[in-house]
Simulated scan of single mutants.
Amino acid sequence: MTTPILLVPGLNCTAEIYAHQVPALWQFGPVTIANHTEGSSMREIAASILRDAPPEFALVGFSMGGYLAFEMLRQARGRVLKLALRDTSARAETPEGAEKRRAAIALTEQGKFNLAVAQSFPNAVHPDHVGNAALKALHVRMATANGGETYIRQQTAIIGRPDSRPELGAIEVPTLVVVGDKDAITVPEAAREMAAGIADARLVVVPRAGHMALVEQHAIVTAELTEWTAK
C-alpha cells in the first residue's frame, strides 16, 4: 500500500527546496509539493493546500511549512497519517521576530525585495556555508520565483501565526523532528520542545547545518525522511 506524501515549502521557497528528497520518497507513494502562495494568513494558506491535497497523506513541513502543518492539523487532523517537522517551531512569533519581519516587508514595499532576500541569507545557513555560492544562488532563485507580493503575504501570515505548543500533546501520528545544529531562525531548543511535547517523536539534530539543512546536509535529511516514511 502506498502513502501519498505532501511536502510544504518554507518562506521564499519553491519546490526546488525538496529537490534532493523527492526522488528518494517516490518509492513510497506519490509526492506532491504544496502550493503555499495563496492566502494572507495561516488559516487561508492551509485551507488552500488542503483543498488540493490527497484525502490522506504523510505531511512534511519546512520552516513556514511547519507552521502550516500545525494549522492543517487543526483543520483536518484525521487526514494526516504521519508528520515530519523540519527546521520549524510550534511557538508564536516573538515581538523581536515580528519587528524584523515588518522591516523586511517595508523594504519590499519600497521596491527593495532583492535587498531583503540578500540580507536574510547569512542567517539561513550554517556559518561555514555563508560563502557558499550555490546555496546563495538557490536562496535568491527561489525567492525571485515567488516574488515580492507573495513574500509580503507569507511574512504577514507568519507574524500572525498562533502558538501551537498547547496542541502538541494531541498529535498521535508518527512524528519526526529535524533541525540543523546551528539553525538561528528556528533554534534547536524549539525543535527539542516540539519533540518533547509529541508522544514518541524522534528528534534528529543535523551537524554542520543551519536553517536550510534540507540542502546544506541533504544526504542526512533525506535518509531520515526515508526511514520515517518507510515505517
Rank of each mutant, 00 (worst) to 15 (best):
P54V: 08
P54T: 10
P55C: 13
P55Q: 15
E56M: 07
E56I: 01
E56C: 07
E56G: 07
F57R: 01
F57E: 02
A58H: 14
A58M: 13
A58E: 12
A58D: 14
L59F: 09
L59R: 08
V60I: 15
V60N: 05
G61L: 13
G61V: 14
F62E: 13
F62S: 11
S63W: 04
S63N: 05
S63D: 03
S63P: 04
M64D: 01
M64S: 00
M64L: 15
M64K: 01
M64E: 06
G65N: 08
G66I: 06
G66T: 08
G66V: 08
G66N: 02
Y67W: 12
Y67Q: 07
Y67E: 05
Y67N: 13
Y67I: 12
L68R: 06
L68F: 06
L68Q: 04
L68N: 01
A69W: 10
A69T: 11
A69I: 09
A69E: 08
A69H: 11
F70G: 09
E71T: 12
E71Q: 14
E71K: 07
E71F: 01
M72D: 04
L73T: 03
L73Y: 02
R74N: 13
R74G: 11
A76F: 02
A76G: 12
R77A: 15
R77T: 05
R77L: 05
R77I: 01
R77Y: 01
R77G: 06
G78L: 02
R79S: 13
R79A: 14
R79F: 10
R79N: 09
V80E: 04
L81E: 13
L81K: 15
L81A: 15
L81P: 00
L81F: 00
K82G: 11
K82N: 14
K82T: 02
K82V: 06
L83R: 03
L83I: 02
L83G: 03
L83N: 03
A84T: 01
A84N: 05
A84D: 02
L85Q: 03
L85C: 05
L85K: 03
R86G: 12
R86A: 09
D87N: 05
D87G: 03
D87Q: 01
T88P: 12
T88F: 13
S89P: 02
A90I: 03
A90V: 08
